[in-house]
Design a protein around this nucleic acid. Sequence first.
DNA 1: GCGTCGATGGCA
DNA 2: GCCATCGACGCG
Length: 206
Amino acid sequence: MLKLDQPFYAKPAIELAPDLIGKIIVRRVRRKVLRARIVETEAYVGAHDLACHASKGRTNRTEVMFGPAGRAYVYLIYGMYDMFNIVAGEIDDPQAVLIRAAEPLDGWSADLSGPGKLARGLQITRAQNGVTLANDRLYLLDDPADRPPIVATPRIGIDYAREWKDELLRFLDPTSHALSRRIDLSNGSKFNLVPQLDSESGVGQD
DNA sequence: GCGTCGATGGCA
DNA sequence: GCCATCGACGCG
C-alpha cells in the first residue's frame, strides 16, 4: 500500500477524479483509525465550470482551491453538511474533486453513501479545510491490486449550471453497493466506461 | 417504490 | 435567495 504523495494530486480534476476511485482514505481520530475505499467522485474543473464554486470568483471560501493540489477543501452546505473535496491542478487554477461515497473497511460499519454522510462518518469538518493530505491524521493510500471499472455520469445536484450540468464529470465504481444513487440500468442509458490506463502517473513511493 | 418538503446557516 | 444534502413523510 502506497501513500499518495503531492505529485499524484497535481493533475487536472478530470483526471484526478477517476484516479481516486478505489483509493483508501485513512482518517485517524482520537485513538481510532478509520479506513474507507472511495467509490464515487466528482470533478469541478475550474473557474469556467459554472458548477464550480470558484466560478463566482476568489473569495474566503474558495481560497483553498487556488492553492496547491493535495489539500482538503471542506465547506458547509445546506447549513448542516460538510463536503470533503481534494484540491487538484496547478496553483491559481481552481479545481477540486468532491469525494461523494466510500465503503468502510476493516469491518467498521458506517453508511458513507453520499458526500454529507461520508464527511460525517469520517469526522471531516471545516476544521480540516486547507490541511495537506500528507499528515498522519488524514491521507490516502493506493492499493495497486484495486483497479475497478470506472463509469462516468453527469454530476448530482447542479441543475443550475446550464450546459455544465450534462458534462460527464461524476465517476464511480459500478460494482459498489455504497453509491449515493443506484446505477440506472433501465431504458437506453448507456454506460460510459472510462478507459483504463496501464499505469497511473503520479502514484509515488511511500 | 416514488415524489415532495423542511431543516439550517454561510455565502454572495 | 440560493445551495456540490439528507431523511421523513404520504401515497395507494
